[in-house]
Computed example of a mutant assay.
Amino acid sequence: MARESVTAKRRTPKAPEDRIRARNEATILRAAVELFARKGFDGTRIAEIAEASGLPKANVYYYFETKEAIYATLIERLLKGWDKALEHIRADREPREAIAAYIAAKLDYSRRHGTESRFFANEIMRGGAFLSKAQRRHMQEITRERVDVVDGWVRDGRLRPLDPRHFFMMLWASTQFYADFAEVAAMTLGKPKLDAADYEAARRTVVDVIVAGCLAAESRP
């Protein structure tokens, strides 16, 4: 009976008010990130977010007490997405598979969340004033953990000698470019906008070049 009760509880759908809250918060965040990406924090007003989301201004304040709260939520969501991609870089995986999976995940995130990536890039170019100390520390710590993994691969002779910090910056540059500079990428490819096939071509190219360049000679196919 206890097992049945637990199962039934897990299958209980969210209350209607929870679904409404989740839907409205998502709507507000979608509208806000578009505005922040184009106009920055100072150039965006709550009234504009309300208008773009199709919700009354009072509703926006109901879900988010301040504009800063919306901005901070967007940063936190993006960092979680990037953290998820970094989970592929693990000491128990072969470097070839781990690096290829990480590149694929980062490019997929760029494709699905291009506006969020541009929003964050603009925040950093403005000095990153809204990055909290905890977020900065988290970014440093999670990068350091993955740097240690790459260092271990180098020590084991599975990667050629390289600076893992510059290695990660190269990975970020080659994957986030397709979101942060989507217009340039599309123009280079001679088309109005990027599509899924372009991201797949990018994945193959970036993986082929970077993986082939960093694997130790004995680890290459």
Rank of each mutant, 00 (worst) to 15 (best):
A182G: 00
E141M: 08
M170P: 04
V60D: 08
A134G: 13
Y71C: 08
T27Y: 03
S174L: 07
H138P: 02
S219A: 10
D195K: 12
D42N: 06
I70Q: 04
R220M: 10
A196R: 13
A8C: 10
E48Q: 05
F167Y: 01
L86V: 12
I124R: 07
I210L: 02
V6Q: 05
D195E: 00
A58T: 13
M187C: 02
L86N: 13
A47V: 14
F36S: 15
Q140K: 15
V60F: 01
Y102Q: 07
D92R: 06
A31G: 14
S117R: 03
P192G: 09
L131W: 03
A72T: 15
G213M: 06
D180F: 05
A31P: 04
L74H: 07
V6E: 04
V211R: 02
R30Q: 10
Y63C: 03
A98Y: 00
K67W: 09
A91G: 08
A26N: 07
S5F: 15
A105W: 11
Y102G: 10
S132C: 05
D108M: 01
P16D: 07
D198K: 02
V150C: 06
V154A: 12
R77P: 03
A105Y: 12
Y102T: 11
I103P: 12
Y61H: 04
W82G: 05
L74A: 12
H138G: 05
D18C: 03
V211G: 06
R137E: 11
R146H: 09
Q135A: 14
A196D: 04
I124P: 00
A134Y: 00
V209D: 14
E183F: 06
I103Q: 10
A2Q: 08
V6N: 08
E48S: 02
A201Y: 12
D195I: 07
K67S: 07
P13H: 11
I49V: 11
H166Q: 11
K80V: 13
E87M: 02
R45E: 15
R146W: 06
A26G: 09
Y199Q: 03
V33R: 14
H113Q: 13
R90Y: 11
L79I: 13
R160C: 04
V207A: 05
T44Y: 08
R165S: 13
E145N: 11
